[in-house]
Design a protein around this nucleic acid. Structure first.
Lengths: 254, 254
DNA sequence: GCAGGTTAGTGTCCTGTCGACCAGAACTCT
DNA sequence: AGAGTTCTGGTCGACAGGACACTAACCTGC
């Protein structure tokens, strides 16, 4: 048996009072549904390193705040929304040299928002933009640092969350049709879902979606006006829609 | 729209060259099955703060290593095993004041090991011990820092992993009986599984467990000698055993 | 060695879930 | 009015999963 290392006590050769200093940052992957597909909010770097490249927004954690609070602050500074509930921590990244300037460990957060297109458009469009996730995964758009890896992990996380939590409702508005909700699953998982079966599964799970009694107006193509729902409680374990490998993914190839 | 914060660029009032320094540590929650229930490896703190209290092993991340490498190093220093594959990062913790001495952000890793009782017994028994997870969750055993929260998250993670990955085989030996494997599910989820149905489900998923053709010796109580299996590949999505809420959890209450 | 106890493994039935597909309802557009 | 489109409900069949009886193969004690 080797030496027992206790927390707060450094291993041999390391002086506890001279711990290696790190910068801790929080990076937020902001996902949203726009134009029927999954998009991520990216900002363009204004300075070296990786000047001019796309990156996900983030910043330093401050000593008096928790990691969650830091993520909320970054999200607020970036989009103006303050929706703490849909922020999910999904990973920490600390490879040496991931930032060429210094030792940086970053904690990745996932934020799912209803279409933030308007918000982004309000800022300097050359600085921030919604980019199709598919383009990032395909490598069409290169990201700074190890942000590709971070976005990849965030997307995988949202795919899992979609199955086990009520995160799908975060993509849509306060009231929504089941077609909108179904589009979220289809876009994130890259599958086709039967509308009839989807409806049955979703409404069967009592309290998950609540009918408002009102109906939305049909699109320009016509069609029966769909019911409007609002989000109920989220589930504890396992959502109504299960993810199955239909092995005919359309887009969003990994 | 607020100011856009870019990575590597600090928000207003913060000088990028004088980023707030943090210590970054890695804490490893080592879980194993002993005496039919889930146990966690704890070490007793030899110095302040929290002197004499139980804690999970961990230590500083060194600049030239990745977080994963740091976790592997800590695990090796603690148990002597070097099984990188079953190390899973599950969370980062950075609440202010979680360490009264300085700003510390720690990254939690989950390690699942086959019974490490012998290894622990080989070290100073008063310094390290396997403790039933149930005792920790019940609060019978108090932990230093925010380690209770970390252990809680690790246990929840292993519960999920059990369903979607092949982590169950990490709890058992190179060859194992299906009763042993079933005991893992029963202990971690706190449920009772039908032996017959369990066997069918596990064997049906081809390649997940591979029969060796040999049989184990029955226990002292007798019984038909069980078949011995070895672990095959892990699944990609969804294991053969599904977690259902039978709402009759025995032990391991949350 | 035989009876009774114990554990492992097989067979069978039954029920609930989920996907595929059809049909009707309710709208828009021409 | 008729065609096209979308929503919603109905039906059927496949299949997975739970309950449970039953057989197989070992142990201990007498």
């Amino acid at each position: 048996m080797k030496t027992t290392t206790r927390p707060g006590e450094a291993p041999e050769g390391y002086d506890p009072s001279r711990f290696p200093p790190f910068a801790v940052t929080v990076d937020v992957v902001i996902l949203t549904m726009t134009e029927g597909s999954l998009h991520v909010l990216l900002v363009r770097r204004g300075e070296a390193p990786f000047q001019g490249m796309w990156a996900i927004p983030g910043g330093f954690k401050r000593p008096p705040e928790t990691l969650d609070e830091a993520a909320i602050r970054e999200l607020t500074e970036e989009t103006g929304v303050d929706s703490a509930s849909l922020l999910t921590q999904f990973g920490a990244y600390g490879d040496p040299g991931r930032d060429p300037r210094m030792n940086v460990v970053t904690v990745g957060y996932l934020a799912v928002l209803r279409d933030v297109g308007a918000i982004v458009a309000g800022s300097d469009a050359s600085d921030a933009a919604l980019v199709p996730v598919a383009d990032v995964l395909k490598g069409t758009i290169e990201l700074a640092f190890d942000h590709l890896r971070i976005v990849l992990d965030a997307v995988e996380r949202v795919r899992v969350e979609l199955e086990v939590s009520g995160i799908a409702s975060a993509f849509v508005g306060a009231t929504f049709t089941l077609a909108e909700l179904r589009a979220v699953y289809e876009a994130v998982w890259g599958v086709q879902l039967d509308a009839a079966n989807f409806r049955r599964s979703v409404v069967a799970d009592e309290g998950w979606v609540i009918p408002t009694g009102r109906r939305a107006r049909p699109g320009s193509a016509g069609g029966r006006p769909p019911e409007l729902f609002r989000a109920g409680r989220a589930w504890r374990h396992g959502g109504p829609i299960r993810r199955v490998d239909r092995s005919q993914s359309k887009g969003l190839t990994r």
